[in-house]
Amino acid sequence: MANLTGLAAKPKVAIHKFSSCDGCQLAFLNLGTKLLELMEWVDVANFVEAGIADPHAKVDIAFVEGSISTEAELAHIQQIREDSRFLIAMGACATAGGIQALRNVGKLQAWTESVYAKPEYISSLETATPLSKHVRVDLELWGCPINSYQVLATVRSFLYGVMPAQEHDKLCLECKRKNTVCVMVAKGLPCMGPVTHTGCGSICPGVGRDCYACYGPAENCNTPAFTQRLQQLGLDNQQIARRFLFINNATPTFAEAGKHAQENR
């Protein structure tokens, strides 16, 4: 675990973006009036979208959104690691490669050729991968997207000199706490809650639909038993595979469960 001793009272923070939709940076930009408050707690050295650009600033904490999918990004994340005392990966792209990791099992060259008239102009790595594949990551904030609560809780904890407490429970526990009716039991929907990491506020069951695992796998998932449950609900193997191979397709737990379902024909 990272050692937080000696962190400045007003730590220097950088926010960086790699291959992604920008949605996790919005956890900052959507803070409303709290955004102005946050700017008082920390000294923001780099946040390009907000107009503060110093990509090579030496900082205490770097928040990084996005996956690594080009040579330039690879070099840049290594630089950021050197420049930052703590590196925090935020969101499914940074923690698991994100939805674009689906290309890792595709044929990038063929895709580029079918998509761009002049593929030689396009520079891209074969894979889109999480930060932890390339550099040491001190903390991962899971979710697609992460929410403002996760950001604020993290910054607050750092200011108190402790690493933020993180739950790795299943989403089901969140539904139980909120008294949300189980959509799998009541409606027979293929809800991913039993294998999905908590943290979103169980919003999908909250609107009466099945969770699609945008917060990634929970700890100690029993994916074989869950796969059987999905079969009992009438899903075929390809449908089951797609349930796992979605937003967090490249996490080892889901990648394996998805592959298993695909081969289960």
């Binding site: 674009q100 998509v115 761009y116 797609r242 979605f246």
Partner: peptide
């Protein structure tokens, strides 16, 4: 120079509900 993310390729073969 935002890296391409190949969205239109991921959607091929996906169910309309997704």
């Amino acid at each position: 120079f935002e890296p391409p993310r190949f969205f239109e390729k991921f959607v091929e073969g996906r169910d309309y509900q997704e």
